[in-house]
């Protein structure tokens, strides 16, 4: 398997950063939820090339009302949602560790998952195309279905009340590289 820790192509150009968000900070710190998880180091290095983009405010989030944002590119496949789940979740931020964000294209064949949140079970899906379901409390893991990777999780950080996206775990559907500019 490849890791892209030292891949120069994985670093966005300054122009791209500005185009996307105006944010130009890249964090090398391992996100807190990954500390102690085997494989976390490789993962944090992988996240190194991503922009740090403000995507929402904690105080504005309501349970069951996902907030949309684009990341890391302004491309239809990069449509994501922040969810306040009400229960602790892997990678969750906020005092209850219940705020997470995921890409909204099904990593099976790209089916649209937006709006298909089951709040009782914190499940996204079933996908309208072939019924895959994803566990939002466990890194977007496939519960039942066909996707060959979990739902890509957007790595979040909290700074005061501001929520920043700082990376993507998993390959966004349709992309061959999360950091390859779609129209480049």
């Amino acid at each position: 398997m490849t890791t892209n820790a030292c891949d120069p192509k994985a670093t966005l150009t300054r122009r791209q950063f500005l185009f996307l968000s105006g944010a130009a900070l890249v964090t090398l710190a391992t996100p807190k939820f990954l500390q102690g998880v085997p494989g976390a180091e490789a993962l944090s290095l992988q996240q190194a090339g991503y922009p740090r983009t403000k995507v929402g405010q904690l105080s504005a989030l309501k349970a069951g009302q996902p907030v949309a944002f684009q990341y890391p590119f302004d491309h239809p496949n990069c449509a994501n949602f922040i969810y306040k789940l009400g229960v602790p979740a892997a990678g969750g931020i906020g005092p209850a560790q219940d705020v997470v964000a995921f890409n909204s294209l099904c990593p099976h064949q790209g089916g649209p998952l937006s709006g298909r949140l089951n709040t009782e079970h914190q499940v996204l899906g079933p996908c309208p195309l072939h019924l895959s379901t994803f566990d939002l409390t466990r890194h977007g893991m496939v519960i039942s279905g066909h996707a060959t990777e979990g739902l890509p999780q957007i790595v979040l950080e909290l700074s005061g009340d501001d929520i920043y996206a700082t990376g993507v775990m998993g390959l966004v559907y349709g992309f061959h590289n999360n950091l390859a500019e779609p129209n480049g």
Partner: peptide, 11 residues
């Protein structure tokens, strides 16, 4: 081996 999601794939 622990599963580590990848964010790219060689074409």
């Amino acid at each position: 081996t622990q599963y580590t999601p990848q964010d790219k794939v060689p074409l």
